[in-house]
Design a protein around this nucleic acid. Sequence first.
RNA 1: GCCGAAGUGGCGGAAUGGUAGACGCAACGGACUUAAAAUCCGUCGGUAAGCAAUUACCGUGGGGGUUCGAGUCCCCCCUUCGGCACCA
Length: 829
Amino acid sequence: MANYALSVPKKPNIHLVANNTAMASYPFSEIEIKWQSYWQTHKTFRTPEEVDTSKPKYYVLDMFPYPSGAGLHVGHPEGYTATDITARYKRMKGFNVLHPMGWDAFGLPAEQYAIKTGTHPVATTAQNITRFRKQLQSLGFSYDWEREVDTTDPKYYRWTQWIFAKLYEAGLAYVAEVPVNWCEALGTVLSNEEVVDGKSEVGGFPVVRRPMKQWMMKITAYAERLLEDLDTLDWPESLKTMQRNWIGRSEGAEFEFVVEGHDAAIRVYSTRPDTIFGATFMVLAPEHPLVVQIMTPDQKNAVQAYREAAARKSDLERTELAKEKTGVWTGAYAINPANEERIPIWIADYVLATYGTGAIMAVPAQDERDWEFAELFGLPIVRTVQPPANFKGMAYLGDGPAINSGFLNGLDVKEAKAKAIQWVEEMGIGTKKTNFKLRDWLFSRQRYWGEPFPIIYVEGEPKLIPLNELPLVLPEMEDFKPSGTPEGPLSKATEWVHTTDPETGKPAIRETNTMPQWAGSCWYYLRYIDVANEHVLADIDKLRYWLPVDLYVGGAEHAVLHLLYARFWHKVLYDLGVVPTKEPFQKLVNQGMILGENNQKMSKSRGNVINPDDIVQEYGADSLRLYEMFMGPLEQMKPWSMNGVAGVHRFLNRAWRLLVDEKSGEVLVSEDEPTDVQWKEIHRLIKKVGEDIEAMRYNTAIAAMMEFVNVALQWENRPRNVMEPFALVLSPYAPHLAEELWRKMGHADTLAYEPWPEYNETYLQENTVEIAVQINGKLRATMTIPVEAPKDEVLTLAKVQPNVQLHLEGKTIRKEIYVHGKIVNIVAN
RNA sequence: GCCGAAGUGGCGGAAUGGUAGACGCAACGGACUUAAAAUCCGUCGGUAAGCAAUUACCGUGGGGGUUCGAGUCCCCCCUUCGGCACCA
């Protein structure tokens, strides 16, 4: 999950410390510590286990962080501040709010640190969590800390294992032989990220692909639903598109070509069965099982050599490096069932063994890849869709009438497709078929620091351990070094590995792989709802009240994997009746990345990393929160600016001075009845800030508060009826400062549950308004008029403006437009 | 290559089709100060004219279009960022 481990500051930023030692500030440190401890001791943000369910609820979720040794990054508080503002706002609007935080603490860095230093991951994880919690608390986030989850806690991963067991029982978890990146020199399996150009990232040792029995999750069984239900979600359209592409649904037909001289047929998948008359050759994936059977003796050597070369290449090499098409003829022919033509059968690695049937009918005239291949090897090309007259390209993928296609001739693509499918079915050689790009999910990791599988092998067969034995706890180990075999480090815990089957008493061996980091993050949002439940993953009534998550904020890097895996598990749990909703996250927002001051990605090597602790110390948490929101729209990528932080800090100082006399420390509110102008300003602000929070336009709400303070500082008095609402609308953004002002204005309690102030339209109405006067769309004057002034009067007034008269001289007015309260446009020539 | 998002002052960014540049930063001028910091007041897209108030023209990546009126809507193109990458 949110992982900024790579971009870590070790030293404090020098220029930051030197910069603003002399800025006179309100006593932010004192105030922030005071209110943080108040909230903690009063359990201000505790969401009780039993809430008044007649009240509306709001579940605001952050992507929980990986507690790296580096501590918090300024990227974390961006999304966390946004959700905190919304959470605080919703509380004031009378919602029961669930706003939890936890730790995605399994994973590779802790294990690697353990290998390097000999410190157990349990110890480093605990340390890192303590540090992260402290840092988050120092920013004044209104989390209910009694709902914390930690994916490495056996009380938590007991349920991760339980969900795995349910998936296994449902036939959605299975064992398959899948290649891993095996590095002989390091004696370990590497993740794809750890392999660079076919060598290990560490040390540059050769890496080979080696098949191994691993757990897979049958996410493909849910492909259709994962695709369909995207339509019901309030997610960014771009993200939904990414998921749709990832799932990659396509419709076509699967049908057979008979191999000449063999009792065999090649099954192909095509989305363009209408082009079957143009199939001039066939291509099989090199791994296709039929290859060995059909290759002719004189082609045998070439075919075998090609197959071996392909087997040596990694997936990456086969796609990224192989721009040029390659392939070999098998010597065999197939019969095109549409026209009875003999067509050669080739093998080539541009056909993937893992998609469709691992074989295609090649139609070069209507497929760019096939065209390229045909040209390279001099294979025939027959157009079966008539391209437009001006068509200059090679393969033609567009619509047009079928040609050279027997019974399909003259039909457009859509009609021809339907008829071809019908024909294939009538001939009994195939059927209509839907395919997905989505593959099953490789769920095994050859690591120590992850959830153990609740699986034993008895006589080589996998079997669930009884669920009442959960959690199956990770064995204590001193040595986390790779085992030297493709087995994970757990294989070295011999006593743990060798066990007996509690049912039969037979000797059994435990699964030594562990689950991937995704497992724990797939369902953590459920556990927050009922964090201490020892009987079920979470109580169904509580789930019914709180689900779905109303707002989920996190980085776009999880657009596909985490969000797809979590949706998958959620749907499985829905089918089991464990959760009441089809989807977990109703609304989702991706925060943009924060760049360094030089507009580059923050990283240690670039020396542009900003440490939140430094900002808190220098300017206070409220300033950090405010700045993170003021930088620009949440979703956008944007660079850090230390001067910008100082700018919002100055604003908070002014807000403080608006209400507190600097010399005496006395509060400045008066009991005067506010003037019309004062009413208007505060009601306008209440309206603007409320609307902006609802729309997550946090930056413009802050601009409005700045405008308000700038105006209010000019006033001679500070009426309570204006200043109290101001403190309340400021509070979601700068909660410490707002609480302190609220207290100074004489309130004994926290403002966290004060009702959000209401604005009154009558105060917002103006008597006069400034409008623009244009001639032919160009601004020539502005004038102030009574709001209710009728059109004739406004136009008359507009025409007597000196500059307007000047521009109308010698012209004839053709048209006069008045948009009420906005603009006059006179068209003249 | 395909899909998606975005291009506005020196910078971050504002603008229900209706006065482009709110708010903030930086810069510059001034007040306060022995001095500096902090604070406060003011100027701040470009060009030209004027002592000046001001006025004219240009200006939201480029080119067309719709409209009384376009940063905003439509078409074409360019650039940047993100995702996918032989999925038949």
